[in-house]
Structures are given as C-alpha cells and as structure tokens.
C-alpha cells in the first residue's frame, strides 16, 4: 500500500491499480518450486560453465598457437550468439535428441557463460607473473602441478570479483530458460500472473528473490577468495 489506490497522477494518466499481495502469498508453493528450480539450474550451469571456462581459458593461455587460436574461436563463436538462441539450439535445433528442457537450459547457459568464464580465466592466468610458473617448474613440478598448485590459486584471488559478476549474470540469465518451458522462477511468475493478474506484485517478488540469489553468490565468492592482504594485483579489468 505504498502508492495511492486511486487518483489522478501528475503525469496526466489515471493510477488505477489496487495492490493486493494476498494471491502472491497463496501462490508461495509455486514460487518456491520455481526458486528451487532456478537455484538448481544455476548451480548445474555454474559448475559446467566453470569446467568449460577453465579448460578453454587454460588453452587460451597455452604456449601453442593452435590451442590459443582454437580457444579464441570457441569464445568468439559462443559469446556472440544470443543466449536465447543457445537455448533454442539445444531445445529446438537438436529436438531429435529429446533432451528434457531443464538439461537444454543447463547446456545453453553453460556453453554461453563458459565463454565469459574462459575470458576471465585467461586474464587471471595472464595476471600471474610468468616467474611464478617458472619457479614452480624449476622445483620439478610438472606443468599440470604448476597450474593447479601455483598458478590457479593466485589467479582465482585476482579474478574472484569478475567471476562473481559472471556468476550473478548467469543466475539472472537463467530466467531465459522459461522460454524453453523450464519451470523456473520467471516461468512460475508468468503463470501466477496469468492466473491472478497481480502483475506488479509478482514481478517485484521475483526481483527480490533474484537479488537475494545474486547477493548470496557474490558473498560466497568473496569468502572463497579469502583475505586479499597478499594479493599483488588487486584490480583487473572486468572481462
């Protein structure tokens, strides 16, 4: 009830909207179901996008020109195609595979976001001084060990904020899965809106829920990255 129920607004049109939160409260089961699906969808896509991103990003930092070019091609190819098209590719284009909508959503989201993660991983690796890698190799570690034990941990600290941005973006992007019939938060909101016509209330509600999820991920990443007292380079251009 934070707006007048009726009356003439200064802008010259009639504000004729009665706020009523009751139907929203009654639909809480559907909303929670949608929220759960959104969380699951995001978590699956987040994990897969990270795997894709680390592999492609590492290839992009390779000494081999072929690997670098290949990685760059993958990144450009995937991130310059709209996410919705990514989802349609799995859901409509590869319909003969009969993948469930949820899986199509996960795949579309992960491949698309994976390109962004790859760019961040590449930048992160580049920001770790080459001497660190050399020092690790000089003590007899293998290339893989040097990456896992010395380069990645330092890169993660540096790119944690950018990674947080991409992950928040992923959660918000997951709303597009509603277009391929994944019954996540936005999908349920549309359904509830169709039944109750409480347009404003329902969208404000899910906005708040998305905001909550995004804040949770940002916080989690900040904790994961740990104290940054020893990070040499605290800033990195966002990818």
């Amino acid at each position: 009830m934070w707006l007048p129920g009726q009356g003439r607004s200064r802008f010259g049109f009639t504000v004729n909207y009665q706020f009523d939160w009751e139907p929203i409260l009654e639909s809480r089961a559907l909303i929670l179901e949608g929220l759960a699906t959104t969380i699951l969808l995001s978590l699956c896509a987040l994990a897969l996008a990270s795997i894709i991103g680390v592999i492609v990003g590492t290839l992009a930092s390779s000494r081999h020109k072929g690997a670098r070019l290949g990685a760059a091609a993958i990144v450009e190819l995937t991130r310059n195609i709209p996410l919705l098209i990514h989802m349609y590719i799995w859901y409509v284009g590869l319909a003969f595979l009969r993948l469930p909508p949820f899986l199509c959503g996960v795949l579309g989201l992960s491949v698309y976001s994976g390109a962004y993660v790859a760019e961040i991983v590449r930048a992160g690796i580049a920001s770790v001084p080459d001497g660190q890698n050399k020092a690790a190799l000089a003590t007899g570690l293998t290339r893989l060990q040097a990456l896992l034990l010395v380069v990645y941990p330092q890169a993660l600290r540096i790119v944690a904020p950018s990674l947080g941005n991409v992950f928040s973006q992923l959660i918000k992007d997951s709303s597009l899965a509603s277009a391929i019939a994944v019954m996540e938060l936005t999908y349920q909101a549309s359904a509830i809106e169709g039944q109750t016509f409480r347009t404003f209330e329902i969208y404000i509600t899910i906005c708040a829920l998305y905001l909550l999820l995004v804040s949770a991920v940002t916080l989690a990443l900040r904790l994961l990255a740990g104290p940054r007292d020893d990070a040499p380079a605290q800033e990195l251009a966002s990818a």
């Binding site: 707006l3 607004s9 802008f11 049109f13 009639t14 504000v15 909207y17 918000k172 992007d173 997951s174 709303s175 597009l176 509603s178 277009a179 936005t186 909101a189 549309s190 809106e193 016509f197 347009t199 404003f200 969208y203 404000i204 899910i206 906005c207 998305y210």
Partner: peptide
Amino acid sequence: PLLVMLFICYFALPALM
C-alpha cells in the same frame, strides 16, 4: 533479469498506470 525487466515494462508498468 532482462526478461523480468521486459515483463515489468510490458505488463506491470502499464497495469500500474
């Protein structure tokens, strides 16, 4: 999310005003 933003502009704001 962008889609929710569109829903707000297409459904919610017009309904409100």
